[in-house]
């Protein structure tokens, strides 16, 4: 039997990665009406209050899923975000059946070309290079363009001597792009190493859920690894493990608090505290964060 906890009201569409369907209209956490029901405390809350509170339940602090663009909006200093590589858009490299339609649908629903947004910005006055993955774009999966954009960002940041802050959310490598998506794990890791060897700072913030090929590459390669409360962070998702070992998983398994206990994240930071937390880290690394004045 699967543990009920993993199938409680969906916190986000990625936990149901299995059905290959993602629709923002069906996203139970953010319906289009006035109230939403919090999947954690089950209370009815005003959607506007929840959004005002950074997509966090004002009653129990449950962190709702949010789009990459909203995240950038609340995280960066007003007017400082300058998007990079937005012209890159994915194609059906392997002529995989159904992939063209899936891409078109994801683009139409999200208004984005791909599942990651890259750019430069200021956080608390400090210049940074930033990438934020989008949970709604084919389950936040990593295809070749996601890999290419992130690689370019690290190369750009290395050249401009900027720190990188990366928000991860992903169902893993995008299987419709076959081996070429797997290769993005190596490619992005190479770019992280290049940036790291230049003595520059990289901070990752793991959000719910971060799994598969993203966990096994740039998500876990930060100098400092932060996580949002209760975020699922895994290499293999709970359902895959339960199918493999045919036993129930322990309570809280693969949640951020579990990773903290096991030594794989530096700290769990509430979404509303992240901006000041990141600002303090940047301040403490000021010598390594000055940038080349490219802002």
């Amino acid at each position: 039997m699967l543990e009920k906890r993993f199938f409680r009201k969906p916190k986000n569409e990625l936990e149901h990665a299995g059905n290959g369907q993602s629709s923002r209209q069906n996203q139970p956490s953010v319906p289009d009406d006035l109230y939403v029901s919090c999947p954690e405390c089950k209370q009815s809350i005003l959607k506007a209050d929840m959004e005002e509170n950074g997509f966090v339940c004002p009653k129990c602090s449950h962190h709702f899923s949010m789009t990459a663009r909203r995240r950038i909006q609340i995280l960066t200093d007003a007017g400082s975000f300058n998007e990079l590589f937005s012209d890159l858009s994915p194609t059906n490299l392997l002529d995989f059946p159904g992939y063209d339609e899936k891409l078109r649908k994801a683009q139409a629903e999200s208004g984005e070309q791909e599942g990651v947004i890259c750019g430069t910005a200021q956080i608390g006055g400090y210049p940074v290079a930033l990438f934020v993955m989008d949970p709604g774009f084919i389950l936040g999966s990593m295809g070749t363009i996601v890999g290419e954009k992130i690689t370019r960002l690290f190369e750009y940041a290395a050249a401009q001597k900027l720190p990188v802050i990366g928000y991860t959310v992903s169902g893993g490598a995008r299987m419709q792009e076959g081996i070429l998506s797997l290769m993005q794990m190596a490619k992005t890791s190479g770019a992280v190493k290049l940036h790291s060897d230049a003595g520059l700072l990289y901070i990752t913030v793991l959000t719910n859920p971060t799994t598969g090929g993203v966990t096994a590459s740039f998500a876990m390669e930060g100098d400092i690894i932060l996580a949002e409360p209760k975020a699922l962070v895994a290499f293999a998702g709970p359902r895959v493990i339960e199918q493999t070992i045919r036993q129930k998983l322990p309570s809280g398994f693969q949640r951020a608090e579990f990773l903290l206990e096991k030594g794989f994240v530096d700290a769990i930071v509430h979404r509303n505290d992240q901006k000041s937390y990141l600002t303090t880290i940047l301040k403490l690394h000021q010598k390594h964060c000055e940038g080349k004045g490219a802002m």
Partner: peptide, 17 residues
């Protein structure tokens, strides 16, 4: 369980890098 507890994703990521 053990593989996840001991950081399968982190171990692979470190090798790639």
């Amino acid at each position: 369980i053990g593989a996840e507890e001991r950081g399968q994703g982190q171990a692979i990521a470190e090798n790639l890098m």
